[in-house]
Computed example of a mutant assay.
Amino acid sequence: MAYKLDHVVIHVSDWERSNAFYRDVLGAEVVPRGAGFAYKIGDIRLNCHGPGIGHVNAVAKVPVMPGNSDICFEWEGPIDGAAAHLAARGVPVELGPVATNGVRGPATSVYFRDPDGSLLEFLSYHGH
């Protein structure tokens, strides 16, 4: 049986700030979800816990908190384009470009943070 990841959960501390970041930096469609939002990025969805969200039926034993996520997104082009994209939006690269490995093998990545401090990664297979 093959599985495909449908969504992951992140926790944000400020809807306005996070909505702008995920929309402007990751090209997310900001989707209303109850008292909060979700971010649709291509065929990936990030469901969000955050301010004003009450009880959630099913959560991890230790629920994710703002800044606790670590998520990698494939960049469809050379990694220099990802670094330039981040620079144009005022998002500092924390690490990279560095050699990494993804599900398809050797790659190159740049790492950066969302407004709450979660570690995000753009990974490129171009040039490998």
Rank of each mutant, 00 (worst) to 15 (best):
V59L: 08
A107C: 12
N47A: 14
R23P: 01
E94S: 12
V98P: 01
G67W: 00
A87I: 15
A20L: 03
L46M: 14
D24N: 10
L46I: 15
G96L: 09
L95Y: 03
A60K: 08
V56S: 12
D43M: 12
A58N: 12
A35I: 00
P78K: 02
P51F: 08
V103R: 06
S13G: 12
I79M: 11
E76G: 00
L119V: 15
H49P: 02
G77W: 03
G52W: 12
V110L: 09
E94I: 14
G52L: 11
G27Y: 07
K40E: 13
V56H: 11
G90H: 14
I10T: 11
H7P: 10
L5M: 14
P51G: 13
G52E: 15
R17N: 04
V9F: 07
S124D: 11
P66E: 08
A83V: 15
V64R: 03
V93W: 01
D114N: 12
F112C: 14
V9Y: 09
F122D: 03
G42R: 05
H49R: 12
D114V: 12
G90E: 14
Y39T: 15
I53Q: 04
D80M: 11
V9P: 01
H55M: 14
V59H: 02
E74L: 05
I41D: 07
E121H: 04
S69H: 04
F21W: 09
D116W: 04
L26F: 13
E16K: 10
I79H: 10
D70H: 10
Y22T: 04
S118H: 07
H7R: 10
P78D: 08
G34K: 06
K61L: 15
G42H: 01
G117M: 12
A87F: 10
R23G: 01
R33L: 10
S109Q: 05
A20V: 01
G27M: 10
N101M: 12
